[in-house]
Amino acid sequence: MTDRPTAVVTGASSGIGAATARALARSGFHVVLGARRVDLCAEIAAQIDGTALRLDVTDAESVTAFAAAIPQASLLVNNAGGAKGLEPVADADEDAWRWMFETNVIGTLRVTKALLPALIASGDGYIITVTSIAALEPYDNGAGYTGAKHAQAMLHRTLRGELLGQPVRLTEILPGMVETDFSLVRFDGDAEKAANVYKGITPLTADDVADVIAFAATRPSHVNLDQIVLKPRAQANAMRAYRES
């Protein structure tokens, strides 16, 4: 593809993924952007001299085709994921739970398995997985998402040990409140509900998270940043934040 090292970013059509693609390109990577909305990826790829490929992490055939189109890669950013609903366990929507586990957990598994041989073969591979502070603690009405993010984190953290001795580093990024279209998806496009999530708070932006990912990706090869937790100044944890009236 290029003489620049290749970075692969999933969920790259918007939000943290799109910002990460831009940040990595500025850091000297050739970026392969993968998402279902490949037209949006193509727009970003044209701006950063990258490559856009269609990717649906919930579809095994899509992941296989995606990986086959990438001859070499040294960095994988597992960013694809999301949440649906905010109900108590007693009212849980099983279809929403299945989507969250399929997207966040199995999707991350599929892409990681598919690209792991190339990452190892690069001689200096790196896997960065974007989980959430939901991977550290539960919060009321969020069991489906916190459960999925805990499972995704266990996948990533287990791989950290399994790859000891291989030329691959692993970093888990755990953001708190980040204002993207995340909440809009969670609430099925209800803009008012999504806006209320960040009301009275200056949240993180996608660029804030992308800057941290790019920082991790450009550390010397012997340095492994195991976990990076980042939150807005006004947020202490998943359940506690200070909101301006």
Rank of each mutant, 00 (worst) to 15 (best):
R243C: 01
E102A: 10
E162V: 08
T171Y: 10
T180M: 10
G15N: 05
I133S: 00
T218W: 12
M239L: 11
A68S: 12
G17F: 08
Q227K: 14
A23P: 14
F29Y: 15
A46K: 13
E43A: 03
Y198D: 00
N79E: 11
L204F: 06
A92H: 12
F187T: 10
M100P: 13
T103V: 09
I133W: 01
A90T: 15
V105M: 08
A73N: 09
A238M: 12
L204D: 04
H30L: 08
V77C: 05
F29H: 05
A42P: 03
K231L: 14
H222C: 08
V89E: 02
V57H: 00
A65H: 07
V197M: 04
G81T: 00
E102K: 04
L155N: 01
N237P: 09
R54W: 02
T171G: 01
E102L: 05
L230V: 12
A80L: 13
R98E: 08
D59I: 07
A143Y: 06
Y145L: 02
G125E: 04
A67L: 04
P71M: 09
A234D: 14
W97K: 02
Y126H: 15
M177T: 04
I201A: 00
R160F: 11
A68L: 07
R157F: 03
L55R: 02
G200C: 08
E244H: 09
R169M: 06
M177N: 14
E137K: 03
H30V: 07
D226K: 09
A52L: 04
M100N: 01
I127N: 01
G28A: 04
A191W: 09
L136H: 13
G34F: 10
G176E: 07
